[in-house]
Nucleic acid binder design. Structure first.
Length: 290
DNA sequence: TTCCAGGGGTAGA
DNA sequence: TCTACCCATGGA
């Protein structure tokens, strides 16, 4: 089945996909030549299906093998591409802010997300205290070992559900995932969700105050200030900068010396509620993959 | 061998 | 609130 979804003003499909490294994490695959984003997804008990996304003019084109519930397909794409998050106010702010005028001109601001907050949490944990190459390897092992295969191409799999991860013992999980000390946080999060103690998806509720949401995210195992701030961005809250080693490097260069996390926060404080987006789309970039 | 990478958790001050 | 230390993994 094919869907054509009208794109909001100020949205650019490629800018969204390339805004950070998520396109390189399984089960996403990004064809940079054809500009097609794909992943295997399971809809309501059906066999896994390949979902392909691209853009044409002012519409997003979604192609899915076979037939799936249209409402579910639209909801899936909306979350992944942050179509439910308005960017107008941020773009207006950038138009008036030195060094940020390229943001609205390029339709930047949205970042590719996973279909669930659960998947984003596991992936953010996989980025902490490691290299990007290892992050990609850890996430691929989650998918390859615990996801469901696409029948027409078993090399492609779904991202494992909480139930699928919880169904294996911790020792078995840790041995296959090889995520180091992160394995405990990942397996516990999945198990808590599967056993009904944690409802992460309800945290996408925009009525939750941003500070409360930050505290909730910090309560998750393996999620500290950096990871919680990353997740806030995906949830459309930009008041906290995700201070990582790169932020310290960049601000350190600006100030001509080594800086603390506190000083990095102070550096971005003038940008108010847009701080995290300003850091991300500031005209300084780390590399072309992340 | 040793260090450390898009940090987190904890103890002790 | 701040600092020091350890944490599994795998590449350099």
């Amino acid at each position: 089945m094919n869907l054509q979804i009208p794109l909001p003003t100020g949205f650019d499909f490629q800018e969204c996909v390339n805004a950070h490294g998520w396109k390189s994490l399984a089960p996403f695959t990004w064809d940079a030549d054809l500009k097609i984003l794909s992943r295997v997804e399971q809809f309501a008990g059906q066999a896994p299906k390949l979902v392909r996304m691209s853009s044409s003019g002012s519409a997003l084109i979604v192609e899915i093998d076979g037939t799936v519930p249209e409402v579910a397909a639209r909801r899936l794409v909306e979350r992944m591409l942050q179509l439910d998050i308005a960017m107008g106010d941020f773009h207006d702010y950038c138009k008036e802010t030195d060094k940020l005028k390229h943001v609205p001109n390029s339709c930047q601001g949205r970042m590719l997300r996973s279909p669930t907050l659960y998947e984003d949490v596991l992936k953010v944990i996989s980025t902490t205290n490691t290299t990007w190459a290892q992050t990609k390897a850890m996430v691929s092992r989650l998918v390859d070992n615990f996801g469901l295969p696409l029948l027409s191409d078993p090399s492609l799999r779904t991202f494992p559900t909480p139930e699928q991860l919880a169904s294996v013992s911790f020792d078995d999980f840790a041995a296959k995932a090889r995520m180091g000390y992160r394995s405990a946080s990942v397996h516990k999060t999945a198990t808590d969700i599967a056993e009904g103690r944690l409802d992460l998806e309800s945290w996408s509720d925009p009525s939750i105050p941003s500070d409360d949401l930050y505290k909730r995210l910090l309560s998750l195992p393996g999620i500290g200030p950096y990871a919680a701030s990353c997740l806030l961005i995906y949830l459309g809250r930009y008041h906290r900068v995700n201070v990582d080693s790169w932020a310290r490097t960049l601000v350190g260069k600006e100030m001509g010396r080594k800086v603390t996390d506190k000083e990095v926060h102070e550096f971005f404080e003038p940008y108010g509620k847009w701080r995290a987006l300003v850091y991300h789309f500031y005209p300084w970039r780390k590399d072309d993959d992340a």
